[in-house]
């Protein structure tokens, strides 16, 4: 091993040992009680529902809105004065006015 690598490795070993020394610090027992107090404060947890269940919930939530929308559109469309395609064609066929090329170009 080169001297530089040797030095780096020696330093690494010293730093690693210093890092491992941190484990020897003790913590008090009170924090466990504090954790349980906070958890009880938080209350029961609920399992997150599956995607299918969430989708079903969403569909049922949208049902009233969809019904209202269909009803509204039905009322709106029924209030329009409809002309069927057949009536339009009949109107055009019966038109007596002839358009010539001269009229078209305004001559």
């Amino acid at each position: 091993m080169s001297p530089i690598k040797d030095k780096d490795e020696a330093l690494r070993q010293v730093l690693r040992r210093a890092y491992q020394e941190r484990e020897k610090v003790e913590v008090t027992d009170q924090w466990q009680e504090e954790v349980m107090r906070r958890i009880r404060e938080f209350g029961k947890i609920e399992a997150s529902p599956s995607f299918l269940a969430m989708f079903e919930q969403l569909v049922w939530r949208l049902v009233p809105v969809t019904c209202l929308l269909i009803l509204g559109l039905t009322v709106l469309l029924s209030s329009f004065d409809f002309i069927s395609g057949y009536d339009v064609i009949e109107l055009l066929m019966n038109s007596t006015e002839e358009i010539t090329l001269n009229q078209f170009f305004g001559l």
């Binding site: 890092y19 491992q20 941190r22 484990e23 610090v25 913590v27 008090t28 924090w31 504090e34 954790v35 906070r38 958890i39 938080f42 947890i45």
Partner: peptide, 22 residues
């Protein structure tokens, strides 16, 4: 203990368990 300053170990360990619970 390895990653956090000594005075914050208890606080962070608590946070870990709260996060685990959630």
């Amino acid at each position: 203990k390895k990653h956090i300053p000594f005075d914050k170990v208890e606080e962070v360990a608590q946070d870990v368990f709260i996060r685990v619970y959630q």
